[in-house]
Amino acid sequence: MLVAGRIENFKDYSKFSSIKEFNNTIEMFLAEHKKDFTKGELIAFKRLVRFSAKYAGVANAKIGTLVKAINEKLKGFGISRSTFERMLRKAKGLGILSIENTAKSKGGKGHNVYIFNTIDVLKKRKLTYCENEESPCESKDESSNFEGETSNLLKTSNIKRLNIRKDRVLDATFTASYVPKEFVQAVKPFFDHAAMIEDFWKSVFLDTKAISHIVELETITYTAINAFKQAIRGYKRGKVKTNLVRYFTGTFKKLMDEAYSALPLEQFAPLP
């Protein structure tokens, strides 16, 4: 295992002759695999690429440091640590990234070292992504008798044989229970992705946290739905200059301010 230390200690792990070669590799990789990442995961991936510029394709920053840098740049509406970790698993699975663990000189686990691979490595690596996400992932040994086993999937022996992929994208049915069902149904036709829906609702929660005891959840939910529809219209008209979540957040704040100011004065009475 490597010993934790400064980035200079790992410069020899770079597989690129120049930063230009590294950037070209990243461009070619994203041209083919951008679709495999969510919006949040792409933000995480690009941040890691930037941290790998001093010695082309090598970084040793802590995940917490990277997530903090992203959230500061996006003014609090960034990504979570779990999103960053999902990105790492996908990037590693697709062959663009290798991850080496380190240990502290005085004992204990250190930071990770992230090493980007060259195109020739990517071409040699056998990808395991399913071509059709609507179908279950099957191994070659199981594909021939998969249909005959579907009725017995609840048996322990068969559960052990299932290839449940940890990097599969979870659809809207897996959205966390704290997100109102009405909002999920409104977003689902455009983003059938649990993490993405939760990212939209995160901005709603943060913006209404201080007034949640005054404004009914139903009002907040339908204001959020209206804001999302306006954000989609704005996107289709080319008005979104940053990203859709930030545009949605600004729209929601404006609509929520209007709804809040329209509340009757008696609702602002002190709490008992």
Rank of each mutant, 00 (worst) to 15 (best):
V3G: 00
R6V: 12
I7N: 03
N9M: 13
K15G: 00
I19C: 02
I19Q: 04
K20W: 13
I26Y: 03
F29W: 12
E32H: 05
E32F: 07
K34E: 15
T38S: 15
G40F: 04
E41L: 04
L42P: 08
A44P: 04
F45N: 10
F45D: 09
L48M: 04
V49G: 09
V49Y: 10
R50H: 11
R50Q: 11
F51R: 09
S52R: 14
S52H: 13
K54H: 06
K54C: 01
A56H: 09
G57I: 08
V58W: 10
K62W: 08
G64F: 04
T65Q: 14
T65G: 01
L66T: 06
L66E: 03
L66R: 00
V67P: 00
E72Q: 01
E72I: 00
K73M: 10
L74M: 09
G76W: 03
S82T: 11
T83K: 01
F84D: 07
F84L: 09
A91K: 06
A91I: 13
K92C: 08
K92F: 15
G93T: 02
G93Q: 06
G93V: 00
L94T: 00
G95R: 01
I96G: 00
I99K: 04
I99E: 07
A103R: 09
K106H: 14
Y114L: 04
T118A: 12
T118Q: 15
L122G: 04
L122K: 03
K123R: 12
Y129M: 03
C130K: 14
E131P: 00
E133S: 07
S135W: 08
E138Y: 10
S139K: 15
D141Q: 13
E142M: 08
S143W: 02
N145Q: 03
N145H: 05
F146K: 11
G148Q: 10
E149V: 01
E149G: 00
T150G: 02
S151L: 15
S151Q: 10
S151V: 06
N152S: 10
L153Q: 04
N158S: 00
N163H: 15
N163P: 08
K166S: 09
R168S: 12
V169S: 05
D171I: 00
F174C: 09
A176C: 10
S177Q: 12
Y178A: 07
K181N: 07
F183T: 00
F190N: 14
D192W: 09
A195M: 11
M196A: 12
D199I: 05
W201K: 06
W201Q: 05
W201T: 03
F205Y: 14
L206N: 15
D207I: 13
K209V: 15
E216Y: 08
T219H: 08
I220C: 03
I220A: 07
T223R: 04
T223Q: 05
I225W: 06
I225E: 02
I225N: 03
A227W: 07
A231H: 09
R233L: 15
R233F: 13
G234D: 13
R246V: 12
Y247K: 08
K254P: 00
Y260F: 15
S261L: 10
S261M: 07
A262W: 01
E266H: 10
Q267A: 03
Q267G: 05
P270Q: 04
L271W: 02
